[in-house]
Amino acid sequence: MSTPLDESEKAVLSAKHLTVCYDRKPALWEVDLEIPAQTLTAIIGPNGAGKSTFLKAALGLIPSNSGSINFFNQPYEKVKHRIAYIPQRGSVDWDYPINARDVVVMGLYKSMGLFRWVGKKERAQADEALDRVGMLAFADRQIGELSGGQQQRVFLARALVQKADLYLMDEPFVGIDATTEKVILRLMQELKTEGASVVCVHHDLPTVADYFDHIAMLNVQVVASGAMVDTFTEEALKKCYGGRSDVLTKLTDSLARLEELRRPL
């Protein structure tokens, strides 16, 4: 690559014409989005606006129908070691026999490589991360025995040990206690000063301007995106939360019916 490094890394995440459909209903439609480096970005939008879908499609967890997403101007596969993802707390088996420390160690698996067993070094790293989120005292607890906020902090620690440059979080502030909220906010600031970027799906409008400095408003399409002060306006909010475009919904509905008819049984 001949382009200078700082130039190529201006956007930590850039989506071009990204379209994702569930059963032919669009969840994301021609999304163009650039998220600059070293920002705390909130993705907001009404229910069903495709916020989580955007993160999942970006990470390849669900297939996209068209368009592309690049991280640091490269496809995800090439830079996945620089990205940490904190999912909503739904995707894990809470009854699995594992304690908080070993969950955090999982964040190191990738960098450890094949055929290596977890040792003292990895556990020490995990403990360090647990300490950073104030969970060291709970390191030996089974993960399902922790409260929702504590679980969230453990997953945060798992992301921290990955030493990523970009942290993607799916609704990290939902269903947590005040302590956890403070920890997440403190960490976001720390990460930013360390040069990393954070992208959060968020849905609590009153706090969004306090917590973040960059915003992307999503409602199937991108309504607005940019620095918080310029973008987070009443007008944009109205546009974003005013409802889905009726014509688009109707169009895709009729498209779906047509396809259904044509589909061989």
């Binding site: 990470l59 390849g60 967890l61 596969e77 996945k80 993802y85 999912p87 995707s91 894990v92 088996d93 699995y96 594992i98 070993d102 969950v103 999982m106 698996y109 990738k110 450890m112 094949l114 055929f115 290596r116 067993w117 977890v118 798992r158």
Partner: peptide, 21 residues
């Protein structure tokens, strides 16, 4: 035992396993 890490991660958190490639 050699693939314990991989099995462990897959059993506990499938999405994370996928994101990790």
């Amino acid at each position: 035992s050699l693939f314990f890490k991989e099995l462990n991660i897959l059993c506990f958190d499938e999405d994370f396993a996928r994101v990790q490639g």
